[in-house]
């Protein structure tokens, strides 16, 4: 993991909130779509903060059958 993250809101391309639990079609939260700009900005600020603080684990689907080592950090 980098020593410090300087991710900006502009580098966040999409935010899909929640987990959803429907087993037949993929869902997307839409109330944020209709929310005020202030609410939207707060969501992106929280996402950027989380990106900067959480420990990182990388998954590598391009080499799925190879044994994996320790998660990157």
């Amino acid at each position: 993991m980098s020593e410090s993250s300087d991710i900006t809101k502009e580098q966040v391309l999409q935010v899909r909130l929640g987990h959803g639990a429907n087993c037949s079609s993929i869902g997307s939260v839409v109330d944020t779509l209709f929310a005020t700009a202030t609410v939207g900005a707060a969501i992106f600020a929280a996402i950027v903060a989380a990106l900067a603080s959480e420990p990182i684990r990388v998954v590598r689907p391009e080499r799925p059958r190879e044994p994996k080592g320790e998660p990157e950090s």
Binding site: M1, S2, E72
Partner: peptide, 15 residues
């Protein structure tokens, strides 16, 4: 949340 970030953001994470 599941978030899509661009390459610069990935690099900012040291990856």
């Amino acid at each position: 949340a599941v978030v899509a970030v661009d390459r610069e953001a990935v690099r900012a994470l040291g990856l």
